[in-house]
């Protein structure tokens, strides 16, 4: 499965558009990480635990999007976008979406 956030794929023709596919993942941070984070709020700096957590959840969202694309028979997803929103205190939603297409 080819993922790109361009609208075209260099050198390939799009033979079929299959519409929007999406995947999301809502993750909560666990307490240990929260305590570390509140300490970091005094000292400043990167919150490595959160960076990893968000990276993992984003991968999960991408995987779900890919699974959906495979189901409709696509072999590529174009124009992939990401969005993040904190929906509640301590939980964040990672969302990925794009256009499923069939490339020749």
């Amino acid at each position: 499965m080819l993922l790109t956030n361009l609208e075209i794929v260099p050198g390939k023709r799009i033979t079929k558009h299959l519409g929007l596919v999406q995947g999301s993942s809502v993750r909560a941070k666990h307490v240990g990480r929260d305590i570390m984070a509140s300490l970091k709020n005094i000292f400043g700096g990167e919150l490595k635990g959160y960076t990893e957590l968000l990276q993992e959840s984003r991968e999960e969202a991408i995987n779900r999007m890919q699974a959906q694309a495979e189901k409709v028979g696509a072999n590529a997803i174009l124009n992939v976008r990401f969005s993040t929103s904190s929906i509640a205190q301590g939980a964040a939603e990672l969302f990925a979406y794009g256009t499923a297409v069939v490339l020749e």
């Binding site: 790109t4 361009l6 075209i8 260099p10 050198g11 400043g44 990167e46 919150l47 984003r58």
Partner: peptide
Amino acid sequence: SKFPPMYRNPPETILVTGGIVISVDYFKR
């Protein structure tokens, strides 16, 4: 830019990402 230049033999493409969570310190706040 959205559109890559044209190449005679088209390159492969791959999605790349990078993220960071950063916290502000007490003094700055």
